[in-house]
């Protein structure tokens, strides 16, 4: 069953078209990624889905309930984690959580235990009664996420939650998102980090210029654009001799040599690699290392849009 369904979403700010005919769906337990560079329209899309921003066109339903800026019913199904840290600096973490918990209608009796639980999950149990202005950036980020988790939404929307976070905190954030996915929550995750999208997301939409350029599993996306594997060989001896020997192989699309390495672009590295090594041996070129790089979303993105994810 789809937790989120949206279609035909559009939004323009004066002349600028920020989002143009965006639509997708997310099933329970599925993690869906919106991957796109700065200004792609990720936040604008999310704001319309969560009923914060009025859309120019399109329709959103969450758990079967329609969402607009005027509805309130379906909003309780959504947990929203804004891109910018959105907490009250003069309140403690516990007070922040309690406030939003009440606003989301968590019953009085269960609010206290639930707040403790969330503090535990985000690793702030021992700092819960300190004002958040005294927190580090990473702690604020974690609380920012905790507020979105508090009321156990069926759809959790995270807008670039790891920006400006140290590697350790980032890892713990990614782990919690994975856990949520496993527990049946539908997750909408925006990022411009290709690695995060690859690690977390069951399906990814590549968004640029307000439009979804492609959508699917990582495999599907890679196949869609017909990306090839890259084999990097470290060589001892003449790299150029190896290039000459390999050039005639039909499976090789492109081969370039540097001082002590050769980069080879092929279809299906696993089947071609043994033959390449064989040729190297025959040409008496030593191989000091082999690296196979499968195509990633970064290269898919590059192919689809002609630009890099990060400038």
């Amino acid at each position: 069953m789809n937790v989120l369904e949206c279609e035909g979403l559009a939004k323009a700010f004066d002349e600028l078209v920020a989002v143009d005919d965006v639509g997708f769906h997310i099933a329970a337990g599925e993690t869906y990624g919106l991957l796109g560079p700065n200004g792609a329209g990720k936040t604008t899309t999310i704001s319309m889905i969560s009923g914060i921003l009025e859309s120019d066109a399109g329709k959103v339903t969450v758990a079967g309930k329609e969402i607009t800026t005027r509805t309130t019913d379906g909003n309780a199904e959504i947990g929203y984690v804004p891109q910018d840290i959105a907490i009250y600096p003069d309140l403690t973490a516990r007070e922040n959580l309690r406030f939003f918990g009440k606003l989301y209608g968590i019953p009085k009796a269960s609010l206290g235990p639930r707040v403790d639980e969330v503090l535990e999950v985000i690793g702030l149990s021992d700092r819960g009664d300190d004002r958040t202005e005294e927190y580090s950036g990473g702690m604020k980020r974690r609380l920012n996420i905790g507020i979105g988790l508090l009321h156990e939404p069926s759809l959790l929307i995270l807008d670039e939650p790891t920006v400006g976070v140290d590697p350790q905190s980032r890892n713990s954030i990614l782990e919690s998102v994975e856990l949520l996915g496993q527990s049946g929550t539908a997750v909408l995750y925006t990022t411009h980090y290709m690695e995060e999208a690859e690690r977390l997301c069951d399906r990814v939409a590549i968004i640029d210029g307000g439009k979804i350029r492609a959508e699917g599993t990582r495999r599907e996306l890679v196949e869609l654009v017909g990306q090839r594997d890259t084999i990097n060989l470290g060589v001892i001896g003449s790299a150029y001799r190896l290039v000459e020997a390999l050039e005639s192989m039909p499976e090789i699309h492109k081969i370039t040599a540097a001082d002590a390495s050769v980069e080879i672009l092929v279809d299906g590295a696993s089947s071609v690699l043994p033959r390449i090594l064989e040729v190297a041996q025959q040409s008496e070129v030593g191989v000091s290392g082999v690296e196979v790089v499968e195509p990633n979303l970064e290269s898919v993105f590059l192919h689809l849009t002609g630009k890099a994810l990060r400038d």
Binding site: G51, N75, I87
Partner: peptide, 14 residues
């Protein structure tokens, strides 16, 4: 503080 979007996203009327 960025909390306005949170309030607007909450299940309460504007």
């Amino acid at each position: 503080f960025g909390t306005l979007p949170r309030l607007l996203g909450a299940p309460i009327s504007r």
